[in-house]
């Protein structure tokens, strides 16, 4: 344990260098630079609003803001896990040469994406002002889902980066899985449009959906404990809290147990 803390101190600088590198290189050769982070969700929001607002957008909540909330959270989860998945393999040559705490690679990938996610919240604020969404003190509760999604993405990222060392086709499998997760997150539709009660279990088991519901509640001035009409009050909070912590601990465990074998496979 003492060794762990010493190592953390020694390689703290490396961690931030890795984060910085991810962000810097992502937009290095683009003209708009970091504005892409803002433009991309904005464009998706506009397209989805144009296509779906008549069909699926009826309700109390402002539809563009509704879409944007889901889209931003999902976007972070998707990018964060995708980059983390590849991170260990990407630094394979260095793993075989210099001793560096290996968890730095997936965790720095998640953190750099988290920073870009936080920057992209500017778009949400802009659209909320434009659409005149009423904000209450509940907006501060948005920190809860924002923190939980970071913990959850780290856990999933640690697990995926470990498995990807041993199984190279995981990358393609995860792309498919992410698509399924996206469609069950209710990003561009409202769950009360889903009539058939037998399919509603999907929204009870998807932890990312729980996080999005909480985030939307906070944005639209409700308590994060509020129900979405499917489950009881507080369900989404407790479910995503427990899920995030469990998945994080599991990720740490899997990574820690397997990290000594990475060098044999990368």
């Amino acid at each position: 344990m003492k060794e762990f803390i010493n190592n953390l101190k020694k390689f703290r600088f490396l961690f931030w260098e890795l984060v910085k590198k991810d962000i810097k290189l992502k937009y290095r050769s683009s003209v708009l630079g970091v504005f892409w982070t803002l433009l991309e969700p904005l464009l998706t929001m506009i397209v989805l609003t144009l296509v779906f607002s008549e069909l699926l957008g009826k309700g109390d909540d402002n539809f563009p803001v509704y879409i944007l909330c889901g889209r931003l959270l999902y976007g972070f989860f998707s990018n964060g896990t995708k980059v983390a998945l590849k991170s260990v393999r990407k630094h394979g040559t260095m793993i075989g040469k210099v001793y560096v705490p290996k968890y730095m690679y997936p965790l720095s990938a998640v953190v750099s994406n988290y920073i870009m996610f936080v920057i992209s919240l500017i778009v949400l604020v802009g659209v909320m002002i434009f659409e005149k969404v009423k904000v209450t003190a509940c907006i501060f509760q948005a920190f809860v889902p924002m923190l939980l999604i970071l913990v959850m993405t780290m856990g999933v990222g640690l697990m995926l980066s470990t498995f990807n060392v041993f199984f190279r086709d995981l990358e393609y499998l995860w792309t498919v899985a992410l698509m399924l997760i996206m469609y069950t997150c209710a990003i561009f539709y409202k769950v009360d449009k889903i009539k058939s009660a037998s399919n509603l279990w999907i929204f009870k088991v998807n932890p990312l959906y729980s996080l999005i519901v909480m985030f939307r509640n906070a944005v639209f001035g409700r308590s994060i404990m509020a129900s979405d009409g499917i489950v009881c009050d507080g369900y989404h909070f407790w479910y995503s809290l427990i899920f995030s912590i469990v998945v994080f601990l599991l990720g740490v465990l899997v990574f820690w147990r397997k990290q000594d074998k990475f060098i044999l496979y990368v």
């Binding site: 020694k10 390689f11 600088f13 490396l14 260098e17 590198k21 290189l25 040559t93 210099v98 560096v100």
Partner: peptide, 30 residues
């Protein structure tokens, strides 16, 4: 370790940026 020099560089980074990056890998402080 002086093995395969330059293997740990990031190719899109400039030399100056790589000094910081590679140095941090070797455990140097900022």
């Amino acid at each position: 370790p002086l093995l395969e020099l330059g293997a740990g560089f990031d190719k899109d980074y400039t030399g100056a940026e790589n000094i910081y990056f590679y140095g941090s890998m070797l455990g140097y402080s900022k």
